[in-house]
Design a protein around this nucleic acid. Structure first.
Lengths: 155, 155
DNA sequence: TTACATGCAAAAGTTTTGCGCATGA
DNA sequence: TCATGCGCAAAACTTTTGCATGTAA
């Protein structure tokens, strides 16, 4: 399945298929909606007792991003993470919890019109845009509430 | 002017006014629309022959961001940068050149309605959002064009 | 006076690089 | 076969931390 797709994508670009590249891509497939940094991907791979060099993971993640199989996502913490690019998926954005850092996707297509407006106003040709929302996830909202209650009782 | 504002803001939060804090804030004021990382701010300060410890710059930048005088901005390169928060300024977003990295602001207020939609759909309470456009600035567009012409002549 | 900020140097953490060996095509 | 990729370890950075000293209030 994904293994073949990887082989095909690599062949297209005259890149070789290796066991390491397969393992790294798999770790992102298994992470599902999680966004992994190169370092986190390395740890995940190590947990499975796959002996890969950290340098290889870093190089592979960078390669997969260049091939368009991974998308680079950076939130406010400045950690470079990657998410799996799924074919035919809608353009989606990210909603990030300021407290626990959990992330959910949010589909939204109609922002493309804005790109044209930006081009007119700034003279930049626009290739891409990224929108991020920051706030509190439902879990942290209720945890914060009970914490506040505890605090006011203590006073 | 800004010096007093800084003193006032610090006093509000029971923080002390120091020469170092003034110098660091000034480096962001002088950078104008540039976005500086803590490290870049440190270099700027050093250029002016001000002997400040790098640790102090890092601590000060973090403090100024916490006080709301600086705003944390992170682009796709994962470098944490800061921009001066100007009172009463419109909500603005950033347009980034993929080639030279130059950044311009782009005022746009009416995205706030979206926050309500995101809240309904995800259950997150939204405090903030950031929108970034990536493309090519006018300068890089023309540079790329002449470069392409040169390439095709050589072939 | 004294609590807080600074400077320094070391530590911690992340990412990149050089090079000899291994391997996919 | 042999160009490419890998593993290892060192290097290069960036950012944080502990602690003695200096200083704003």
């Amino acid at each position: 399945m994904k293994y073949d797709q990887l082989r095909i994508e690599l062949k297209k670009r005259n890149q070789r298929m290796t066991a390491q590249r397969d393992i790294v891509l798999k770790s992102f497939i298994e992470a599902e909606t999680d966004h992994l940094s190169a370092d986190e991907a390395y740890r995940k791979v190590m947990e499975k007792n796959c002996r890969i060099s950290k340098a290889t993971v870093y190089r592979t993640v960078e390669l997969l991003a260049r091939l368009g199989l991974l998308r680079r996502i950076v939130f406010r913490d400045g950690i470079v993470r990657y998410e799996l690019v799924k074919k035919g998926e809608h353009h989606h954005h990210h909603v990030v919890c300021n407290r626990c850092g959990c992330v959910v996707g949010f589909p939204l297509d109609n922002l493309d019109d804005l790109e044209e407006l930006v081009r007119e106003k700034t003279g930049y040709t626009i290739e891409d845009h990224q929108l991020k929302f920051y706030g509190l996830c439902p879990k942290c909202q209720s945890e914060k509430k009970t914490q506040n209650n505890r605090d006011s009782e203590t006073k």
